[in-house]
Structure formats: structure tokens, C-alpha cells
Design a protein around this nucleic acid. Structure first.
Lengths: 109, 109
DNA sequence: TCAACATATGAACAGTTATTCATATGTTTG
DNA sequence: CAAACATATGAATAACTGTTCATATGTTGA
């Protein structure tokens, strides 16, 4: 009797989270899987910043940043506040930090 | 004096990790950003399993699983051992678990 | 060594994604 | 209200990604 689990389909299958949850999880990580968005999040670690300046720091167009911010916003990873014409973006909560830290740990091993 | 950081380009820029690290990080998360791979990892939480059975559990072709396993392997997220004709895959370490747990936390908030 | 089996790999294709360009929305000031 | 500015959005495009099919590699036992 080996220790592999090929015998126990039903057991393993039952232990899996439901498909919707797995889908959501993948969707979440997809968001972190892009250099522009990772950079955005890292910049926002330091505090809020307006769109224009985010674009300059990243070296991409205002439009590109805005599109990416929309994705981050819709996943509730960032939030924003308006001040006159300017909109300042910031991190929504600390999950972002902890998620990224987990990744960094793996890379630095 | 507001609290935003638009003034402090250089400061924020200096605080950013180097591009290579940010790239690697994005590459890592990209791997988690796919339902098939997330499922694979979840299955392997329960123990090692051979390719054929992984394919059956996932409902995709043997080839597809093999391609995905190659990606997971090259990122050192899984490892394998051969036993005759069969190859058993398993998680490489516990980082996978902690990374995924961070994601789950965000989803369940 | 040959047949049967398990896994890996390459090419092709369909679907997705990130960017840019052009333009729209919304805000402030004269 | 009009002009100037900041951001958002839609369409188009180029690049990337995951799957399948066909086939190659590698292992075992007769």
C-alpha cells in the first residue's frame, strides 16, 4: 500500500472547494499576475496617489492606468476619493499586503 | 498640506522593489490565476496523485494537465517522483498553501 | 526487442488581455 | 457657459494563454 491518493477519488473530490469559489480565487490571482497592476499596488503601499502621477511613475499612458485601476477597483483592492478634478487612489485594505508578502516569500526562498 | 504622495515621486520610486522582482512576482501570481492550476494545487493539498487521475478529476485531457504541471514544476510549486511508468505529483512546499489561504481570506471578507 | 502503457511535447487554434488612440464625462475657474 | 484640465471609457489591435490533436519519449513485461 503506497501513500498516494489515486485510490481515493471520491475523498479528494469531496475535499475540493466548490467551483465558484475556485473560479473567484483564480480571478483574484489573475489580477496580481500583471506587472502594471503589481506596480500600482506597490506604489499605493506608500500612500494614495493621483492617476496622472501613477501613469508617470509607471511609464504608461493615463488611459492604461485608468483601465487597470478600474480592474483593481472592481475587485475591491483599491478605493479612491475625489478632490476637485483629481482622483486619489489608495489600497482598500491590508489583504493586498499580506497576499503580496506571501508571494515574495516564495520568490526569496 | 494634504496627505497624498504625489509630491514625493523620488521617495516612492525609491521604495519600489526592482523591476525584476516585480516581474517575478507577477509571473508567480499568473500561475495561480487559472482555474485548472488552482484545482490541481488544491487536489495536491490532499496528497500526491498521478497525471491520469488528475486529468480525470479535473475533467480535462491528459495533455492539458501535463502542460499545466510543467508550468507548476518550472515554478517549483510542485515536484514529482516516478514509480514505474507512473509519475506522482505533489506540492513542493507549504508556500502554496499560505499563498492560497491569503487569497481565500480576501474573498471571504 | 516489441507491444502496451504513462507521460511529455510541439503545433495550431480559439479565446483572452493589455495597450493605445480617440473621445466622452465630469470638475473647476474665468 | 466656455475653456482647461483630470479621469474614464469604447473600439481596435497585437501579444499571450490554455486547450486539443497528433506524436514523441520513456518504462515495463512478455
Amino acid at each position: 500500500m503506497t501513500e498516494h491518493h489515486c485510490d481515493d477519488f471520491e475523498g479528494v473530490k469531496a475535499s475540493l472547494p466548490d467551483d465558484e469559489m475556485l473560479y473567484d480565487l483564480a480571478e483574484l490571482y489573475k489580477i496580481f499576475g500583471d506587472t502594471t497592476r503589481i506596480k500600482l499596488l506597490y506604489i499605493l503601499f506608500e500612500g494614495e496617489m493621483c492617476v496622472q502621477h501613477l501613469a508617470e511613475l509607471l511609464g504608461v499612458s493615463q488611459s492604461a492606468v485608468s483601465h487597470q485601476l478600474r480592474i483593481l477597483k472592481s475587485s475591491r483592492l483599491v478605493r479612491y476619493r475625489r478632490e476637485g478634478k483629481t482622483i486619489y487612489y489608495s489600497l482598500a485594505d491590508d489583504h493586498v499586503r499580506s497576499i503580496i508578502e506571501c508571494g515574495v516569500e516564495h520568490i526569496n526562498e
